[in-house]
Design a protein around this nucleic acid. Structure first.
Lengths: 343, 343
DNA sequence: TTGTACGCGTTATCAT
DNA sequence: ATGATAACGCGTACAA
């Protein structure tokens, strides 16, 4: 069995170094290159990654850590899209990917694995305000890019969107069409997205001179919490609801219709994410388009930049969001697509 | 910065070999062990995986390949559970995991990555009757365990359930409660699970002396195809529907109720998987429990057996399934849980 | 119990 | 353009 460069060298009558050059595209005469290539193809040789990594210091493999409950992970198309975007860029760069999915308790085990010098860099999601794993990664010498960011991550490299501004925009849209009692079903408390969207909602309401007293109920980024939250808000007589994401809005819509109320005539409804199903709800949902797949691609690109220029300092990217106005807020008559927001 | 065993050796006044023994639990005197440990903890040293793999031939990392459309992957809780089961066993064995998710076209790229000698073994899903990637993996020298199996995989190591027998059991249950026109909304054609469940359905119907003419419609393992399939079957006057999985049954249930028909009085309904939501449908769904998480754990265990005893030949495991009878077939009056089936 | 020394397969530097 | 040869960091016979 042919396994090593030495085997190939013996077979093709050249030195190991030359074979290595052929494999990696170094300077080799056309004649010997062809000769070695022939041997190479007849043996289906594969370079040993461990040896290659040890010698060169680069593995061509990056780690991706989705540090959240696996249960959640496999319910939200958001993650599929994010991953897709990363894969787009990674495969383009012929780079492999090691994926870790929310090993709840074992943050330390995880850290160990990540720091073993096999990875060129790592991408990690930071959805919670407190996350020791993310802290550990950022403190390590491993090049790291964060999806989302916390206040404390100002010095880290990250890719995020401006949740505050986006939420402000949606809320302003709702007040702009004349709604006064705009309710908000929040995302999970303790998450960056959840808290920031609350901030944006409050800011817009305050600017419009409206009170938010009794108009906020806690949600959990899922359909069930949307359905439950809407029950409370409707009891308090809202004329619009801004939901922390599309799944929540889906649940709220269910409650609203069960009560025989009309959207948007009785209650205007808006979400966040613009996942595929949002456009197919009845009525189609006004929401914020995040461009999740692009976000994934951007994260991967950022990591590559970091790897290429390690001394270049942290990269901070805030991607634009887009307010997508559909019938759940403006009815059948007016239709439009709002402008780009964010920085 | 302390990075290597040599650094630690210098710091603790012993040889590199001794430090290595301390790290890996070799024979060391209690005195020196304590001394080295102290240094170890003060430096948060991490062994270099590449070097370790190169020297020992084992990496402590296995690959897991979910070779399916990522879009599908993130919709079905099945995969979350499968992964969970694997993780249970892997973390128990202090083994890392590299995860690949359905890189559609790039089967060859994928293969390359897998065969680079960094992985101790690999787990791969084989849901389709034809799958070049699985073929390649099985043909390679890398220890491989397959989730599910095709006819041709008789010589491979795999973990599966007896889909034929399980489908036979559900169908027999339906005919056993007096239904004569039992329809079947199939799984995706070309998948092992889809085809085998059809076989089981047909077998049970034949044994009961019933025809299946016009009683089968093609589905796709999802809710939408269940809803669409039920329309056709109801038009043909079925009194029971066996759906290829729970998601399909969920869709069918929607159609049935939309027509004002009652379950199980007018139409008895059964699924396959026993995912969490099956018990919470209205009425609760009769289905086949697969024990997906256990299946994942079993796959991982099987791989470890293979790694420990490479010469031991292929391991083939068929896990039992359980018919879970709920109100969607027997109404409010009778309730029971059926026996264990499979081998 | 501890240390010495070699090998794992590759990259990279230096001569030639 | 090509060939020796020294790292890379660790495990592990073997010797002491």
């Amino acid at each position: 069995m042919v396994r090593t460069l030495d085997d190939l060298a013996a077979l093709s009558g050249v030195s190991r170094a030359t074979v290595s050059r052929v494999v990696n595209g170094g300077p080799v005469s056309e004649a010997t290159r062809r000769r070695v290539m022939a041997v190479l193809e007849s043996t289906n040789y594969r370079p040993n990654l461990a040896a290659r990594t040890l010698a060169s210091g680069r593995s061509g493999v990056v780690g991706v850590v989705f540090h959240i409950d696996p249960h959640l992970l496999f319910q939200d198309p958001y993650f599929a899209q994010l991953l897709q975007g990363m894969t787009d860029v990674l495969s383009e760069q012929a780079t492999g990917m090691m994926l870790w999915l929310g090993n709840r308790s074992k943050e330390e085990t995880l850290e160990q694995v990540l720091l073993m010098g096999l990875l060129d860099g790592v991408i990690v999601t930071a959805y919670n305000l407190e996350d020791p794993l993310v802290d550990g990664l950022l403190a390590s010498s491993l090049p790291t890019v964060v999806v989302g960011h916390r206040r404390a991550d100002r010095t880290a490299s990250y890719v995020d969107v401006d949740h505050v501004q986006a939420a402000d925009n949606v809320t302003s849209h709702l007040t702009g069409i004349g709604r006064r009692r705009v309710g908000h079903i929040t995302g999970r408390r303790g998450t960056v997205a959840g808290e920031d969207r609350i901030t944006g909602y409050r800011r817009a309401m305050a600017r419009a001179g409206l009170s938010t007293d009794g108009l906020m109920v806690d949600g959990d980024f899922n359909k069930a919490s949307g359905a439950a939250g809407a029950v409370q808000l409707l009891d308090r007589g809202v004329d619009a609801i801004f939901c922390a994401n599309d799944a929540t809005a889906d649940g709220a819509l269910q409650t609203i219709r069960a009560r025989g109320l009309k959207v948007p005539e009785d209650v205007a409804l808006a979400g966040f994410d613009d996942l595929e199903f949002a456009a197919h709800l009845d009525p189609p949902l006004t929401t914020v388009r995040q461009g999740v797949r692009q976000q994934g691609a951007e994260v991967a690109s950022t990591l590559f930049q970091l790897l290429q220029d390690p001394g270049g300092g942290a990269r901070r990217v805030i991607l634009p969001t887009e307010l997508v106005i559909r019938q759940s807020t403006v009815g059948q008559l007016q239709q439009a697509t709002g402008g780009v927001t964010g920085a």
